[in-house]
Write a protein that binds this DNA or RNA. Structure first.
Lengths: 234, 234
DNA sequence: CCAAAAGTGTTAGCGTTACACCCATGG
DNA sequence: CCATGGGTGTAACGCTAACACTTTTGG
């Protein structure tokens, strides 16, 4: 199936995903780079005519990262006229050798139902789509200019993540199954963009009674070995 | 213009509004009752082809309540296949004397971008749409069965309202410009569905430094007259 | 003077903060 | 023994809860 297939997708409706990962102390998201233009965009896609909206987003996530069963949350739907710039999609498609009628469904106005995902950086197998040269990680606090309103979409995703992090305790989704307290703290610091007091953080996390303590992690460094933790199941 | 106009609206995209009001100690929402069927639904509508999504929701709110400049927040977009029941819209339209082709755009699949609004009950001038016999207030904790997934939409709206009430301090939008502390407390109690300690509530609200104290309200009752408060501007 | 509701003072409790201290590890 | 980073004890602090008390109003 090609993206240009006329049948099969709902017109006017797209989804975009802000896929967060954490590595080397930095919060990052995935961006696609379109052929030739060098333009950067969030990974996204369209909704099949007989597919749940959420399923479409899950499918898109799976296609780009290979991952299933991921923390995925819908956070906002962007539908201003200002985001309707048919020449952008037209240029992207032409760079791929597709020359469409001006009234082709892909050049029409779209609203974007936007999701954010939290994934374990280590497990991702990146796969570009057919219009893109690459899909790659970009640090959240030095993002380049993205197409359309995608920078605003990222900003809103980050805001939602910050608001929900402590209430829903979803930060662990960015880490491997077992992690040290320091790693968890780095995730929180990367998301909030500020340093957190070590002892306070440790006590707050342990006090929530959501962590299970496992064996120590011996790194070969000359200091006390930290415990490994995991989130309690159910 | 009639709802059946084929041109002018984006297909597949609808909006629905959960419009909250507060009266006589109860939290209420507005529901439409369709002709003949007796079916109840959230007020909603479609998005014009050259209209911002948010503008469409504002327009719908204005059409039903007469109100402008209202607290309105988009909270979720519902897009499961399970909500696609063309026979529901078909029955509603037939009850109004409209018999459409099965492939008419109004009988197609829709996703619903959902908004909730907080309004001053006293100021509303209710106006049914052309498919409805009535638009009226219903108490949130004894809602009847609504069409499609509208009960779930209301549930999610209420959940979002509860989560945002204290963070965004939006409760005052349900009250007149000036109100007593007791009235504000009743709003909070109606939204959370539980009693709040009077003195604690008063001190917390005053401590937030968002209220301005005005003259006392003499009701003729034989007890101390309460102060009137308003929210500080900016 | 009384009843009722509004507003405030006071104390206790509890969770977070700040800082110190101790522990484990490898060089 | 030292440097380094992890873990915990303790006291101060601050916010909320709990309850008593005072104030205001009309009958």
């Amino acid at each position: 199936m090609t993206v240009l297939e006329t049948q099969g997708f709902l017109p006017h409706i797209a989804f975009d995903s802000v896929i967060f990962g954490f590595s080397k102390g930095k919060l990052k998201i995935l961006l696609m780079e379109y052929h030739d233009t060098g333009w950067l965009a969030l990974p996204g896609g369209f909704v099949r005519k007989e597919e749940d909206l959420d399923e479409a987003a899950k499918r898109g996530l799976k296609e780009r990262t290979g991952l299933d069963n991921i923390y995925l949350e819908q956070f906002y739907t962007f539908g201003n006229m200002a985001r309707f710039k048919p020449e952008v999609m037209q240029t992207i498609l032409e760079a791929n050798g597709f020359f469409l009628d001006p009234d082709h469904w892909m050049l029409d106005r779209f609203i974007s139902v936007s999701y954010f995902a939290l994934i374990n950086f280590e497990k991702v197998i990146l796969t570009p789509d057919e219009l893109s040269d690459s899909i790659a990680w970009y640090e959240i606090d030095s993002l380049p200019k993205l197409i359309l309103d995608h920078n605003a979409i990222v900003a809103k995703a980050l805001q939602t993540l910050r608001e929900n992090l402590e209430r829903k305790l979803i930060g662990g989704n960015l880490l491997p199954e077992r992690f040290t307290m320091n790693e968890l703290q780095q995730v929180y610091e990367a998301i909030f963009g500020e340093k957190i007091r070590r002892t306070t953080f440790q006590r707050k996390m342990l006090g929530l009674d959501i962590l299970e303590r496992h064996e120590k992690l011996y790194t070969g460094k000359s200091h006390k070995a930290p415990y490994l933790y995991s989130f309690k199941k159910v």
